[in-house]
Design a binder for these strands. Structure first.
Lengths: 356, 356
DNA sequence: CGCTGGCACTCGGTAAACTTGAGTGCCAGG
DNA sequence: CCTGGCACTCAAGTTTACCGAGTGCCAGCG
């Protein structure tokens, strides 16, 4: 708070010292061990940890301080300590980097990006599978909304004597469609003309813009145009919904003890809107990790979220995220999320159809 | 097996009598109560059930017979009885009809089909939500594969100087797309020509047919055509994957006690291919309910599946299904599945864009 | 002859009493 | 300031006892 202290070294180091170098080491040991074992960690288990090397009694007295300052808690007297959200936060911020992937996982990632092909949606979808496999937690990938995309093409295709399809291609490669009913069988003849008419007047506009009716040429064409504009209008809603992909929800059942928790977290994941705003929110606050109550979603208070942005050619594209228990393996998870987010960005910038 | 017995009456009744009328009533009572309470049912709880009205001692001796014949089991001596899969099967086949929806649920269904609009995919997706809400179990809806659909239109749309999109509209209203790379910026000028060329030669064909190269007109057009045909080819794979929608997976966490079960069932649901073949398989065997091990999927042995076909204008369209514990409320579930399956068929046959 | 009430028996589940041991806080001495 | 020692605490496991829902069996009744 008052960095006028002349003894202050580098920022990070200063933070470490704000907690006491040894205390930090003890906190790290507790967090690491708890992540591994999921059981309260006692002083004697920490005493021999690298960077500590003091007696358990000393550890104990330090732990009292850590508890007083809110980094640790005891489930009950005469039990070991468990990190609090604050404890995890300090661990993530000061005690560990993003970590490095193991060779197996490196290979998994490499192989994935070698093999994957197809449209963006497919890639994103599969990426969630990759991420959840790498981390054993549930993965979320959010693609961009098509809000700002402009219309590249409008086409009318007849499906049956009385039905036609309005197909719109957007500048970002998305395709939207709507079925429209035809007044009568004769209308089919005018589909091409109406399509061309729409195309001529709408290309370059955005889908959100009110479906301004362009001038007309003939009566039946006009009818088709009107119907199509209605369809176009109804696309507006779908279009600003971001694309969300969830992978490995089953992993949640492994991550949590309580069935109740599993249920509530699964319920959240079903509400894509919530998921999107959660990730966006965390990213906007400049975070890559949100622990416990930090993200403000009550039902997810026993979860941690790890997020990384995906940028394509410097443009904000979307985000990849991971949902696990607060006692997740942060280094590994952060590594996985960052790597996948980055490579996903590269992949989407490069060839759209990787030459097999 | 040998229906030569002169005393045999109508078929169903014969089946009942094969078990003994009273025994059937007792079995029904046990199943009903167990569905409600999830606890083993004792003889005294059955004694007063309508259609039984005998002393608990009598019920006990009947229960012994039911257990001998494999309809019931005891978790342990001195406990009540639980239905076996065979017991549920008998219950479903002979002791209960599809049941009737409650007024609230009727209204829910009516309201849903009033409000729902948009493309087929959207409707199917939302239908899973409806079903899972009606039943409190997980719902699955399988749409048709586009295998047999023919091409209605092919179009090339430029996205950027070096990328274009191949957009294919199929006769069933599905739209597929693929991004292709352009050799050089000049190629963009020929997109329209190449698109028209492709359209002219491919309309009416199926996507699965090998992308036969039609004759050519100019060199750059030819290049585009070749690239597009490659893209078309790669669509073949996606096209015969059925569309699967899953709703309310979180309900599974409520349905089962053991976390392990939840996990394994969720895992199954993630594998869409398995889900599809499961439903198809059950339907093909002419069943509407598969209980426990009847469907042969080991990990789902504690589940029951309720399926109903969806037909549009008499054509096989897909299926709606429901996944719950073997001790599910069969009457209600079957009612819900049937109603939704039926109305879904009507809905898809009728106006594609229900007036508001 | 089949149903019933009565009876002895079984056994899972809960509660109480006890034991165990990991872990703590504190303190005196190096 | 650290350390070893010590008394204390308390969740979890174990043992024991008990309760009661439920069973199987049987003799007697209608």
């Amino acid at each position: 708070m008052t960095p006028a202290d002349p003894a202050t070294r580098a920022d990070a180091s200063a933070d470490d010292r704000a907690l006491g170098e040894r205390r930090a080491a003890i906190l790290e040991a507790v967090v690491s061990q708890y992540i591994g074992s999921a059981e309260p960690v006692g002083s004697s288990h920490v005493a021999n940890a690298p960077g500590v090397q003091v007696s358990s009694a000393t550890v104990r007295s330090e732990m009292v301080a850590l508890e007083r300052d809110g980094y640790l808690v005891q489930p009950h007297t005469s039990a070991g300590r468990i990190p609090t959200d604050k404890g995890y936060r300090f661990f993530v911020d000061h005690l560990t980097g993003p970590g490095v992937l193991g060779p197996v996982q490196r290979r998994q990632v490499a192989q994935f990006f070698d093999q994957v092909h197809g449209e963006i949606e497919t890639v994103l979808e599969r990426a969630t599978g990759l991420l959840s496999e790498l981390t054993t937690y549930a993965a979320v990938v959010v693609g961009p909304s098509h809000e700002t995309a402009t219309i590249r093409s409008v086409q009318l295709v007849g499906l049956s004597p009385l039905h036609a399809l309005v197909v719109v291609v957007l500048s970002d490669g998305a395709v939207e469609k709507r079925t429209i009913d035809l007044e009568n069988e004769a209308a089919g003849e005018y589909l091409a003309a109406a399509g061309a008419h729409l195309d001529a007047h709408l290309v370059g506009r955005t889908l959100k813009g009110p479906g301004t009716a362009p001038p007309s040429s003939s009566r039946p064409v006009d009818d088709l145009v009107t119907a199509s504009l209605g369809a176009l209008d109804s696309m507006g809603g779908d279009i600003d919904a971001d694309q969300v992909f969830v992978g490995g929800p089953a992993r949640l059942a492994e991550s949590f003890e309580a069935v109740e928790t599993v249920r509530s977290v699964l319920t959240i994941l079903e509400q894509q809107l919530v998921v999107v705003s959660l990730l966006r929110d965390v990213l906007n606050r400049g975070l890559s990790v949100a622990i416990g109550t930090e993200h403000g979603f009550e039902p997810l208070s026993s979860c941690a979220v790890v997020v990384a942005p995906v940028t394509v050619d410097g443009q904000d594209f979307g985000a990849v995220g991971l949902l696990g228990p607060t006692r997740m393996d942060y280094p590994r998870t952060m590594a996985a999320v960052h790597v996948v987010g980055e490579r996903l960005g590269e992949r989407l910038a490069g060839g759209h159809d990787g030459g097999h």
